[in-house]
Amino acid sequence: MASVSTFPPPASAPRPNWPGTLAVLAVALFYGFGLTALNRIVPGTAAQPAGVTVALGHGVSVVTPAGWSADIPKTNPGETLALLNDASSLVATTFPWEGSEAEMLERLRRLFETTRRFHLAGQPEPFRTARGIAGSTSAIYGEHADGRVWIGRIPGAKFGFAVRVRSVPGQGAAAMRDAVALLESLQIKEAK
């Protein structure tokens, strides 16, 4: 039977377009996985000198412990100090907070359990540093790491602070000592 030319063309199945689809697949793979792989390959740590005072914003500062490297992608200057060593990570940060300390702890618990897959062990306990900075602390545990978090409000400001240490289970004793030292180094300058 002779074919009849029509416009628009009849709704028949077109030939599979493999080259175009493979080109799209290549772009999708580059963005979805290639960039992530590249980011993993590029080293993301830098030697972090010990004894350096690092400002975390809102008058808060801490002193870096020895033997740690800066976790560059997770560092946010003036807000978050992120450190790494072989088996542990140590983070000190400030964040806006206008609610009560109990609400802060509840938010922390939910965030840890939902987005970071960590659990707070038992009820948080109060802590106070030698400089008089107070807050709550709790042990944390997960499938691949455990550690501790200290959290509190910055007096007179609508901000909070947190220090968190996390280690491969059984390898965190030294990291815990460094985290306590970092917490003890925490200073808060009162706003003028």
Binding site: L35, L38, N39, V42, P43, G44, I72, P73, T75
Partner: peptide, 8 residues
């Protein structure tokens, strides 16, 4: 990834 690469 791009944020991480820019930081590094």
């Amino acid at each position: 990834a791009i944020f991480g690469l820019a930081a590094k």
